[in-house]
Design a protein around this nucleic acid. Sequence first.
DNA 1: TTACTTGCAAAACTTTTGCGCCACG
DNA 2: CGTGGCGCAAAAGTTTTGCAAGTAA
Lengths: 160, 160
Amino acid sequence: MKSQSTESRIAQLCIEHGLKMTGQRRVIARVLSDADDHPDVEELYRRASALDSRISVATVYRTVRLLEEKGILERRDFGGGRARYEATEHGRHHYHLIDVDNGKVIEFEDPEHEELMRRVAERLGFDFVSMRLELFGKKRPQTAQAGKAPQAAKRKGAAS
Amino acid sequence: MKSQSTESRIAQLCIEHGLKMTGQRRVIARVLSDADDHPDVEELYRRASALDSRISVATVYRTVRLLEEKGILERRDFGGGRARYEATEHGRHHYHLIDVDNGKVIEFEDPEHEELMRRVAERLGFDFVSMRLELFGKKRPQTAQAGKAPQAAKRKGAAS
DNA sequence: TTACTTGCAAAACTTTTGCGCCACG
DNA sequence: CGTGGCGCAAAAGTTTTGCAAGTAA
């Protein structure tokens, strides 16, 4: 039985990967564990700073890069010029539908998908490591869904 | 019957979209039409310059951005820090498998896929605009396929 | 003609890094 | 204690932009 801990889920993974757990990493790990969206570095820095002001943005960059290399995080590009991050999922994957009119991100699942991709990788002689799937769409006018001031997505700085 | 033209395929699309066809755009359009890989701006600039030296990199940036907005090009992120471009395909889509050990990109098809994604978009109340699918994998040692000096992929500057 | 496009160079941004100090293990 | 991490500020790298001049339609 695994002893319960006060560490966040991601902090646990860091430990399992043999990383030195500094105060800063613990804070960043908690922020990442609590996030249910796709923050960029600037946003992670903002949230981490709120918990502990002794954190620099350079450390956030170094940490997300490290965690990505360890496979704990995955980097996404939703087209706002900044990389965005979310925890790697094992098993139940989800994907992203980006509304091209406002940059909003909607998550969706598609259970068959990963198995499909594993087979593709295998057919090509590769072991599956990870994947990204981004779907871009335009909200359909349609059913009693009044337009909510559709504003063109700026190129820099899209939303969650 | 469509009259045959000396314009490249992409140049034709530019015209159909009502874009003013300058000499620079024609050259860039030709380079893009001829490319069967995924060049970044620097590479496009290199190829375009070889055809006509009176082109600046700023114009390449402006042009790919314009063509992406028109839906003529699609931007890709294969993790080298620079955006890469390829012509939008209608119908027979292809996807990308990136070898995590050396950054090489392998294309593959998966005919069911687009239809699958169209249905997902529809289910969520969106019209399908485009999609990206990137698969990351590690070459399987296996069958009489001797290792070809697997060198870790640098973070900046991956290959074709 | 006239609005749009280009080249050039500077600016804007995101991300990485060198260095001296600090802290986890 | 020693190796590795941190903050700071500078550097590096990519992409955008202001402006004056040129060009397609």
